[in-house]
């Protein structure tokens, strides 16, 4: 449920500042939260870990890649 709430916050931030990592976090937390909603009772730790990795790590990877691309284009300009 928290992951689904994170979805709304990340989508709102994405609308405000238009950064791709927030869009990725919003969709990944929505998908992982909705998927885990049906299976979390059978293995709570496994699905909680899945949600953390899917949302936070994807946000981190995309954010770092975006920053790297931005700094690369900045040097080129």
């Amino acid at each position: 449920m928290i992951a689904i709430f994170i979805t709304f916050a990340a989508h709102t931030l994405d609308l405000l500042i238009d950064l791709p990592e927030y869009r990725v976090m919003a969709w990944s937390s929505l998908v992982s939260g909705l998927t885990a909603l049906f299976f979390i009772e059978s293995a709570p730790w496994l699905w909680t870990g899945f949600i953390f990795i899917a949302s936070f790590c994807l946000f981190g990877v995309v954010g770092l890649a975006r920053a790297k691309a931005a700094s690369g284009s900045g040097f080129g300009a």
Partner: peptide
């Protein structure tokens, strides 16, 4: 992103 990546790896790995 660096904080989120480290926190996600830490908590996801622990879970």
């Amino acid at each position: 992103p660096a904080l989120a990546l480290s926190l996600g790896l830490l908590m996801g790995g622990y879970c």
